[in-house]
Simulated scan of single mutants.
Amino acid sequence: MYSKIVVQYREAPTDKSDWWELYEPFEETLSDGTTIKISAGYVTDFASVPWILWSFFPPIGKYNRAALVHDYLYDLQLREKELGEKQARYFADQQFLYFANKVDPKGFVRHYIMYQIVRWFGRSAWRASK
């Protein structure tokens, strides 16, 4: 059973995206068995997707869990000190794919495309979190 994601819309600092604030703590177990705890108050945009692609890759919806975990791992830069930037970012991106497949096992082709997009464009977001 999944833990519930409780968010409320929050005015974005710019007009470029929508932001959502976590109103209750959220806990999730990653693919390697590590548990992360995201505190209430954490802010996410879920998925940063250009509006032209929303019909195929919606920024909000059934992939919220995958996007929330991914955003948090990027913000935290989990394991960068131990693994280095490349491997730590790879791990975070793998978690996006893992949770997308968990939520919708039949959508693995779509998830893989989404994962590749995250891989291609995630480097700048990872470095912006520093």
Rank of each mutant, 00 (worst) to 15 (best):
K62Y: 12
K102Y: 12
K37L: 12
E21L: 14
H70Q: 02
Y23R: 14
P58Q: 03
F91R: 03
L97N: 02
M1C: 09
F26G: 02
L73R: 12
P25R: 07
Q77R: 09
P105V: 00
I113E: 07
S39N: 08
D75G: 14
L53N: 02
D93I: 03
K37C: 10
A128W: 01
A47K: 05
E85N: 01
Y115H: 15
A40H: 04
K62F: 14
N64R: 09
I113M: 13
F56G: 05
A12G: 15
P25W: 08
R110D: 06
D18T: 06
L53S: 00
A125E: 06
W126Q: 05
L97C: 09
G122N: 07
S3R: 13
Y98M: 05
Y112M: 14
D75W: 01
Q87R: 08
E85Q: 08
E24I: 00
W120F: 09
Q116C: 13
D75M: 09
E21C: 08
I117N: 10
S55F: 07
A12V: 03
E80D: 00
Q94V: 01
P50R: 01
I113S: 11
A125L: 10
R127N: 11
S55A: 11
M114R: 12
G61K: 05
L97A: 10
K16T: 14
D18M: 13
F96D: 04
K16E: 15
K102V: 03
Y115W: 15
K86I: 10
V103R: 08
P59V: 04
H111I: 04
Y74Q: 00
D18F: 15
Y72T: 12
N64F: 11
Y2F: 11
T29N: 07
F57K: 04
L73E: 11
G122V: 05
F46M: 09
A100C: 14
R10G: 11
Q8N: 12
P25N: 15
Y90A: 12
F26K: 01
P59F: 09
S48I: 11
L22T: 00
R10N: 10
V7C: 09
Q77K: 10
F56Q: 10
K37V: 13
I38L: 02
D93V: 08
Y115F: 15
E28V: 10
D75Y: 09
Q95D: 00
D32G: 11
S3K: 13
E80K: 05
L30M: 04
G84L: 01
